[in-house]
Structure formats: structure tokens, C-alpha cells
Design a binder for these strands. Structure first.
Length: 678
DNA sequence: GTTCTAGAAC
DNA sequence: GTTCTAGAAC
């Protein structure tokens, strides 16, 4: 009996989708265990047929009364499903969970085989069932009431678990706790697309704990995919109402798509047109096959872009809209159709990102969860694109100027594909930052100011946006990062802090000086956000910034000749608007608090103004150092000795007697008065 | 960029 | 116990 002294029954909840091996596990243990077990399987509890949870509970209680331990052989994938079985626990009954985290593919193929009805339909159903279950899976936690949880990720783990439970005699117990959990991140399962993003961002990730929801790169069976391949469906831009030449347009589509496919991983690009007789479709199709473009990853499709999944059976997670400049519904065609299908959600979501769009630009709009397009078609993002216009009855007609037109159309597709790329992967590691959005921060759009079409996508501009997986994106500038930009654009509104200004520059004190003297010379050029945006056209500007910086050094040294300065730029600025740091080398400041602060001024991340000028003159651009150096050791800027913490470093630099390194002394990178004793 | 703070390091 | 870092939130 259960009450027998020292003896404890065990309830083991198997946790896993169909085909994960729950029944096999139970049978293996029961075959040679010395402990009496009862397997309670919901699939057969009803005289061989599937039964209810209540039946399972009742039978479990009966078995426990008989002194048997029990396996609860049902999926038990979410907390709620498990909760009532956990209540079976008590002073004489322990409750364990055994989690079978095997890959979705394995589970699906096993359940297909078991059903004895191989083939697409059965396979499709099995896949659908497993996928659906995995989507709402919650891994068990000790605080649900388990005394022990064991995670298995592969056959070897399962074999060990079988041994563990087989060896368990009637009087034995197992240690409490959670065992074998490999990646605690899987405790909550975000939407299926989030998973895909995570996986595609780190293609090398092979942690088997995510395997259950990770598609293999080269899956052979379509239905086994847990997440669909990211796919962008896009209409031909500018060739309908904007009357752009079809031949030229088709060349540009192919050219830009071809350039992007290698960057997109397994993702697909699909040109869509409503009509079977579409000329642009047949042109693109013919040219694509001539160019031997991978037809699995770039193809044309006839259908309604708002109903590709439901009517066409094509799964696309992102669609492009041939938008108008006002980013509003209307005009008929694709634009009207998409706005109609997406409902008011799209207008609101668009408005949160941008108010207007310039030709050649794109804006990525994530659809809110309530959006019908998301729910009915699985579309997670709409990317609005505005192409060039050749129709005299529409705004901004280019009057047949195809030089300009082709350039803008190329930009439009590039912006679109970049936008798509940004939905596929987290781009935080991309070195280039100059593909910035050009929608104004205040939401007011000034078409005049975008003389250069260097930027491409307009997205995530309103604030530090967070993508679906919770990471901050590198695109766009958070509101705090705009402070310098705002001052540079309107110094007259900030008279209280502006020390000096000309048509091209503004000088201010750094709000959080990292040394006794620390001022910033801001460029007033609209489109130059940082060193990476600098080109030959900015040489005069760089020279003026340096001269103004030197003037301020003189001024400071007149007050205190012992001050030593460097003039330079951060390789990758945290704040928008090119700014030159004029900073004394004492680094005596309470605002200098962390490794990033120190390393940004004392490693190769800090690019001396002189060097930058020389590089721009000779090679047309400045070299920039990777942000990785910011995480390096803390080294003295004079003797280069390493120090474990910021406080220790600071106390060292207060008294370090060494001269500055050779390369700084050699040229006039380091600005010291001759009579200073350094 | 800063502030705040959990928790690692000492 | 305190010091310090590093990540999240802004």
C-alpha cells in the first residue's frame, strides 16, 4: 500500500508532442523495472480509444492507491494541462516531469510512420498537429510543483533517462531538482516567426534544445517545416500607374534581386501580379531563366497579393506595397487592395513609422496582432515602397528622364529588399550604418532636404524600436541619440548651450564631459551622421571642424598650459550628427564611468582628426574601427598598463609618470604646449 | 548617450 | 559585507 513506511509513489508526467517517444519510454522502463508502474495513456484509455483528461486523472488515482507509480502518457505541453496531475502529489507521492525535447522533424516522421497512413495528407496533418502543439509549448518548471524535472534532447538522453527510471526500486528515490535543461531561453515559446528570426540570425546555432522548433536548412519535406521560409512578395514598382518602361524595370528587378539573394540566406523573393497576361511578369521570368537565377528563391507568381496564402497556397510573411507618397489608401491597384485587406490597423501602424515617403524609399511596417492580413494570410510586415513616376498626371513626374528614373527605381528595390532583410535578421552586427532612414524625426517631411539619395529605408524612426525578439535594432536613432542633431539643425533655439556657431559648425560643451575640458564641434550638414558618412565632399567641413577645434584648444591652454588635448571622432558614434571631440587627456571626470567610455577615447576607436582628413583626401573615406575594441582591456593611455577596474585605472592615470605613446607624440595628434613638462 | 539595479566579484 | 560591471530601460 501507498502508506507503507518510507515508500513513495512517483507520478511521472511525460512532456512532449506526438512522436517524441513518450510511450516508448514508458514501455522501456516498465519492461524491466522492479517498481510497479502503471502507464496511463490518454490515447488508448477508453478501451483502446482516446479518452479524456478526467479519465486519466481517475485512473492515476486508482493506480496510486494500489501502490503503483504512474506514467502520465499524454502531451502535457502546457502548464495548464499539467496542473491537475501535479495535484496528485502529496506526502507519499512525488511528481516528476520528463521532457522529451526532440526535433520536430523526428516527432513528425515518427507519428506519420506510426499512423500507418504515409502520404501527404497524413503527413500534413501530423505536421500541422505537431507544429501547432509546439507553438503553445511551455517547458515545465519546478515551481509548478514538480520535485524533479529531467530534460532529454536526443536518443542518448532518453536512453539514460530510461536507465534512471528502470533502476529505481520500489523504495528508492531520485534527487530533486531540474536536470539537463540546456537553454533556459526555451522556457517560453514566442511566435513561430520569432523563432525563425532567432535561428536565421545565428545559422550556426546548434543547441539541440531549440531543435524542436528549428527547421533544418535543407528540409526535403515541405510539410515538416515548423516555420515557413521567409518570403517577400512584391508587385512590380512604378510599371502600372506610374508608366515606367517595362523593359528597363524588369532589368532593374533582376539586377537588384540578384544582388540581394546572397544576403538573404534561404529567404525568397516573389514578384506578384494579378494578371496571367502580365507583361512585366513574363519579361522578368524570361530574363531570370536566361540569367540562371535560382528559381526556388526568386520567381514570379500570379495572384492577389493580399490573398497569396488563402487563394494561391503561397506562404509569404512579408509583402510590399506600391505606395503613394502620402502613405495612404487610395488610387486603386495594389495600394488600395493592401490597405483594404489590412484594415485600419495598417494605417495606424504606418503612421507610427512615417507620414510620407520619398521616391526610392521604403518603410517597414510590422502588422499589429489584430490585423486581418496577419491572421488570415500570415503576413507579419508590409513594406511600403515608392517608385519613380513617369506619368504626367501624377505627382513628381520625371518627364521621361530615365537616367534619374532608373536610379530611383533601383533605389526603391534596394530599399525594399533591405527592409525585407531587416525583418529576416537582426542587423545589429552590420558594420555600415549609413542606410539610415530619411523620414524626419518630428514627422514633418521636407522633400527639399534629401538631395542625396544615399539612405534607403525609412523604418523604426520614432524611437528606440524593439524588434519582435526584443532586441534593439541598429537601424534608426533612438530619441536620446538625436540631441546633437537637433542642436546642429537649430542652434538658434539652443543659445544657452551653444558656445559658437557658423553656417557649417556648432560648438557645445559635452553634456557629460569625460575630462577636465571636453567640447564637441558638431557638423551642421544634414546627411552626415557619423564618420562612416564622410566623403570627399566633406573635406572642407572636416577642415573647418579641425580648425575650430584647434582654436578651442588654444583657448583652454591659454587658461591652463598644462592641458594636453586630442581632436578626434568616434568610429561608430552613439549619437547622430558628425561630431569632433576636443578632449583633454587627463580624463579627470566623474562622468567617465565604464569601459566603453574609456576605450572610446583611448583605443583605435578614437580616430584622430588629422588621420581622418588624410584618409578622406587620399582614399575618399575614413577608416573606422570595430566596436569590438570597446570591450577590450582597460589600458593606461600613457604607459599602456592594464587595470582590472575603472576605479583602479583612474587612480593609476592620476599619477602615471610615463610619456604618451610614440605614435601620438610623433605627429601633432597630441596637442601640448611646448612648456608643459610632457 | 545616461540611469538604474541585479548579481558577480571580491 | 562592499565594490563594480553589465544589461535593460529610457
Amino acid at each position: 500500500m501507498a502508506a507503507e513506511k518510507g515508500k513513495k509513489e512517483i507520478v511521472v508526467l511525460l512532456v512532449g508532442p506526438p512522436g517524441s517517444g513518450k510511450s516508448t519510454f514508458c514501455e522501456s522502463v516498465m519492461k524491466s523495472s522492479h517498481r510497479p508502474w502503471s502507464r496511463i495513456c490518454q490515447d488508448i484509455i477508453n478501451n483502446g480509444k482516446a479518452g479524456s483528461k478526467a479519465q486519466c486523472l481517475k485512473m492515476a488515482m486508482e493506480s496510486l492507491k494500489e501502490g503503483k507509480s504512474v506514467f502520465i502518457d499524454r502531451c502535457n505541453l502546457d502548464r495548464e494541462q499539467r496542473s491537475e496531475f501535479i495535484k496528485l502529489g502529496g506526502p507519499h507521492v512525488e511528481v516528476h516531469a520528463l521532457v522529451l525535447e526532440l526535433s520536430a522533424q523526428v516527432c513528425i516522421s515518427r507519428s506519420v510512420k506510426r499512423s500507418g497512413h504515409e502520404g501527404n495528407l497524413q503527413g500534413g496533418r501530423a505536421a500541422a498537429v505537431v507544429n501547432k502543439m509546439l507553438r503553445s509549448k511551455e517547458l515545465p518548471k519546478l515551481n509548478e510543483g514538480f520535485s524533479r524535472i529531467l530534460f532529454c534532447y536526443n536518443d542518448a538522453d532518453v536512453e539514460n533517462a530510461v536507465k534512471t527510471y528502470t533502476m529505481l526500486g520500489p523504495m528508492d528515490t531520485l534527487p530533486s531538482g531540474s536536470f539537463g535543461l540546456k537553454n533556459p531561453d526555451t522556457k517560453s515559446q514566442p511566435g513561430i516567426m520569432n523563432f525563425f528570426k532567432k535561428v536565421s540570425a545565428v545559422p550556426a546555432a546548434s543547441s539541440s534544445s531549440t531543435e524542436a522548433t528549428t527547421p533544418k536548412a535543407n528540409e526535403k519535406i515541405e510539410i515538416v517545416r515548423v516555420s515557413p521560409v521567409p518570403t517577400l512578395a512584391f508587385p512590380s514598382i512604378s510599371t502600372a500607374d506610374f508608366q515606367f518602361d517595362l523593359d528597363k524595370a524588369s532589368d532593374i528587378i533582376l539586377e537588384t534581386a540578384e544582388a540581394f539573394l546572397p544576403k538573404l540566406g534561404p529567404a525568397r523573393l516573389v514578384l506578384v501580379d494579378l494578371s496571367h497576361g502580365s507583361k512585366i511578369l513574363s519579361l522578368v521570368k524570361a530574363k531570370a531563366s536566361r540569367k540562371n537565377i535560382d528559381s526556388g528563391r526568386f520567381f514570379t507568381f500570379v495572384g492577389d497579393i493580399t490573398k497569396l496564402h488563402s487563394q494561391g497556397g503561397l506562404h509569404c510573411n512579408v509583402i510590399a506595397n506600391a505606395a503613394n507618397w502620402r502613405l495612404k489608401s487610395g488610387g486603386g491597384g495594389v495600394n488600395a487592395a493592401i490597405f483594404k485587406a489590412a484594415g485600419s490597423d495598417l494605417e495606424a501602424a504606418t503612421r507610427a513609422r512615417a507620414n510620407t515617403l520619398l521616391p526610392g524609399k521604403a518603410v517597414v511596417v510590422p502588422l499589429p496582432s489584430t490585423c486581418p492580413l496577419l491572421n488570415a494570410e500570415g503576413i507579419t510586415h508590409v513594406i511600403h515602397v515608392l517608385g519613380p513616376n513617369m506619368n504626367p498626371n501624377r505627382p513628381d513626374c520625371l518627364n521621361n528622364d530615365y537616367t534619374k528614373g532608373c536610379k530611383i527605381l533601383r533605389e526603391a528595390y534596394t530599399s525594399l529588399f533591405e527592409g525585407f532583410l531587416s525583418t529576416v535578421q537582426d542587423q545589429s552586427k552590420l558594420p555600415k550604418r549609413n542606410n539610415q532612414a530619411t523620414v524626419s524625426d518630428s514627422g514633418e517631411e521636407d522633400p527639399e532636404r534629401n538631395k542625396k539619395f544615399k539612405g534607403t529605408i525609412a523604418s523604426n524612426m520614432k524611437s528606440g524600436s524593439v524588434d519582435d525578439s526584443g532586441k534593439k535594432r541598429s537601424k534608426g536613432w533612438s530619441s536620446w541619440a538625436l540631441a546633437l542633431h537637433i542642436i546642429a539643425m537649430h542652434p538658434e533655439k539652443h543659445e544657452n548651450i551653444v558656445l559658437e556657431s557658423t553656417d557649417h559648425i556648432v560648438v557645445i560643451n559635452d553634456q557629460y564631459p569625460k575630462a577636465r575640458k571636453h567640447v564637441l564641434v558638431l557638423a551642421r550638414e544634414e546627411s552626415v551622421d557619423g564618420l562612416e558618412d564622410v566623403g570627399r565632399e566633406n573635406i572642407q567641413l572636416l577642415e573647418e571642424m579641425q580648425n575650430v577645434g584647434l582654436k578651442w584648444v588654444q583657448r583652454f591652454q591659454d587658461e591652463d598650459p598644462s592641458l594636453i588635448f586630442r581632436l578626434g571622432y568616434h568610429s561608430v558614434p552613439s549619437m547622430r550628427q558628425l561630431h569632433l571631440h576636443v578632449i583633454s587627456q587627463d580624463f579627470e571626470s566623474d562622468h567617465l564611468k565604464n569601459k566603453k567610455h574609456w576605450n572610446s577615447f583611448t583605443t583605435s576607436f578614437f580616430r584622430d582628426s588629422l588621420d581622418v582628413l588624410e584618409e578622406v583626401k587620399s582614399q575618399g573615406k575614413a577608416n573606422v574601427e570595430s566596436e569590438a575594441v570597446l570591450r577590450g582591456e582597460l589600458r593606461c593611455n600613457r604607459c599602456r598598463s592594464a587595470h582590472p577596474t575603472i576605479p583602479r585605472l583612474k587612480s593609476h592615470i592620476r599619477t602615471c609618470p610615463s610619456p604618451f605613446p610614440h605614435h601620438l607624440l610623433q605627429t601633432s595628434r597630441l596637442l601640448a604646449r611646448p612648456d608643459s613638462s610632457n
